[in-house]
């Protein structure tokens, strides 16, 4: 069965890029626009992995990670955070919150898949 990945980003373009790349690699993809949206969808249909942007309206990525790590189902799932070069402090914050890995935007599809390859078994 195909592994399920949720892509969380407020940018439709990024979501599209993620979906396209992941579906192309055989994953099932669900999308969410921000942390709040994600949490609502996650509860009913928990994925195998989460990819999230950090800077988002309503609930940012850091908070989302914290929430997921506190849930019973999301304690151990891999979480990939998407950062930008200027966000070194955010990266540390995300790691502390429980992010498994990070990827700096802009990224190439191969880079994304390479990381998933390592963290998602």
């Amino acid at each position: 069965m195909a592994k399920k990945i949720m892509a969380v980003d407020d940018s439709a373009t990024i979501r599209q890029v993620l979906s396209f790349t992941l579906q192309g690699a055989g994953f099932e993809v669900t999308e969410a626009e921000d942390g709040q949206d994600a949490l609502e969808k996650l509860v009913s249909d928990p994925p195998d992995m989460l990819i999230t942007d950090l800077n988002m309206p309503r609930m940012d990525g850091i908070q989302l990670i914290k929430e997921v790590r506190q849930s019973s189902w999301g304690k151990f799932i891999p979480i990939l955070m998407l950062t930008t070069e200027s966000q070194e402090a955010k990266k540390q914050e995300g790691k502390a919150a429980g992010a498994s890995a990070w990827l700096v935007k802009p990224f190439k599809p191969e880079q994304l898949l390479a990381i998933i390859n390592v963290v998602l078994l």
Partner: peptide, 14 residues
């Protein structure tokens, strides 16, 4: 390490 959602096997496999 598990609390960060990382499986060491993944790294070893890589």
């Amino acid at each position: 390490i598990f609390h960060r959602g990382i499986q060491p096997q993944g790294l070893l496999q890589e």
